[in-house]
Design a protein around this nucleic acid. Sequence first.
DNA 1: ATGGCTGAGCTACTCAGA
Length: 258
Amino acid sequence: MKIVSWNVNSVRARINNIVSYIKDENPDILFLQEIKTQDENFPYEDFKNLGYKSYVFGQKSYNGVAIVSKSEVSNIDKKFISDDLKQSRIITGQIQLQNKKIEIINIYVPNGNPIETKKYDYKRNWLKKFVINTKKKLLKNSNLLIAGDFNIIPEEKDVYDFKRYENDALGKLEIRKKFRELLNLGFKDVYRFLNKDKEEYTFWDYFAGSWQKNYGMRIDHFLLSNNLLENISSININKKPRSKVKPSDHTPIELEIN
DNA sequence: ATGGCTGAGCTACTCAGA
């Protein structure tokens, strides 16, 4: 089973790229972030024509997440954490993998910049609630898959120039500690688990030729609970979509489990 | 290089992203 996470930076502006990606890569499940649309304007038909069902948690203009899947996803929930600002950033569900019932969690963590503002506090509180509720969920089901745009640079090697980000909401120690806290509940950062020293990125700014210079960062992640590690076949950051015309600034990360 | 793009909403210009 191939599961993909991709911050598409507007599902409607990106639909041609997404359709072309699906035809090339044939994923079973897509976790989309930053769909930037209300539910009623989501391009359900485009996905339906390719054989996918869409589970959408959108909002006007900003944020928004969706799970797009060939098979039915059960127990869809949009209230994994309470969000003070009512932003659409998390959608969860359940899938079956052989004899395991897996809780799947698609997240779009707040950016948090600039620091020392309400935006940063919002990110910190969001992550705090997320860690608490993930811990609770893990007690009920030891098969958890979390993927999405974490807006967290886990380690110094996960960005082209760490010095530029050590006082940024993506790289601050306090934020990286929340990621570490999450792992310590009993998860692996699958990309790093399988690639100890590799330096690949999932995001490159639109400006200043960041893509061409490979000035990027690894902020989109797959976390698997330790109980599911035996099911991993591979993980891959697919850079092709970032090189296309009218790309998202993020590129898909692809997990194969069986 | 604290943004020199890009998108949404809307039709002039802000807000947001990371």
